[in-house]
Amino acid sequence: MEYFLNSFGDITIGNVAILLCAVIFLFGCYKKVEKYFSEKAIKEKEYDERIKKVISQAENYPKWHEQSLCIQKKFGNSIDNLDRKMDKLQKSNDEGMALTWRYRILRFDDEVRHDDKHTKEHFDQILEDITKYERFCKDNPDFENNKASLAIDNIKKAYKKCTDEGTFL
């Protein structure tokens, strides 16, 4: 004990308190540094996992790109088919309207040939139908037009006659 007292005999309570505070301070610093490095390690691990996930997705890119191209090709083909169907439907609709105009022109011509009287508005309407019908026939040379050309001439003559004589209904 004498050796102990020689070595540590002049230590006071103040020195012990300072030593104790230093130990507590160092322990606190150790805990802070441990916490910092622990959180840093966790963040680095999460970052590494995200990087691995991105790399994994990058490795799948060629496969996904190929799938995307296939889907785009299918959509492109579907859109082309829809375009063709729409064009066909539009042509059918346009031809149906032309047939309607022609029917009305022929019917009106029959009425004129049977000396039925018509109002100016009725003539104006049929002349509008004639304009649309002739425009359609001009734009669609494959459409048969020879069925209404004489009727159109007769209607225009009757209109001119009614205009000149003032004999509209």
Rank of each mutant, 00 (worst) to 15 (best):
G166R: 02
F123C: 05
Y61C: 06
H122N: 15
K73Y: 10
P141K: 12
D94Q: 08
Q125E: 15
S92R: 04
E144R: 13
E121G: 15
R84S: 08
D129M: 00
K73T: 09
T167C: 11
S78N: 12
Q125M: 12
S78Y: 06
Q67H: 10
E121D: 15
I71G: 04
I155H: 00
L99R: 07
R104Q: 15
E95V: 06
N146D: 14
I155D: 00
K117F: 09
K138M: 05
H118F: 05
H114C: 14
E49K: 02
R135Y: 02
D142K: 04
H65K: 03
Q57N: 15
S68C: 15
D87A: 13
C70Y: 05
I51Y: 03
K73W: 07
S92Y: 01
R104I: 11
L69W: 05
N81E: 10
T119L: 01
R104D: 11
H122A: 15
T163E: 11
D115T: 05
D115C: 05
Y47W: 13
Q125K: 15
E121H: 09
Y133E: 00
C162E: 08
E66D: 13
T131M: 11
A98Y: 01
Y133L: 06
N77H: 05
L82W: 01
K74L: 13
K132Q: 10
D83A: 01
Q57W: 13
D115M: 07
P141Y: 10
M86Y: 10
S56F: 10
I130K: 01
L69K: 08
E134S: 04
V112T: 07
E49W: 02
E44M: 08
D116G: 09
C137G: 01
L106P: 03
R113F: 06
G166D: 02
Y103W: 14
H114V: 10
M86T: 14
N77W: 00
D139F: 03
N93H: 12
K63E: 08
D139N: 09
E121T: 13
E49V: 02
S68M: 15
S78I: 10
E95R: 07
F75C: 05
E134I: 02
D109Y: 09
D48G: 12
E95C: 05
N140D: 08
K74S: 14
K161Q: 14
K132M: 07
A98I: 03
E59D: 12
S78M: 06
N146F: 14
K91C: 06
K88T: 13
K117Y: 07
I51T: 02
R102L: 08
G96L: 00
K63A: 07
I155N: 00
S149N: 07
Y103T: 15
L69F: 07
K53T: 05
L69V: 08
H122Q: 15
Y47C: 11
L69Q: 13
F143P: 01
K147W: 05
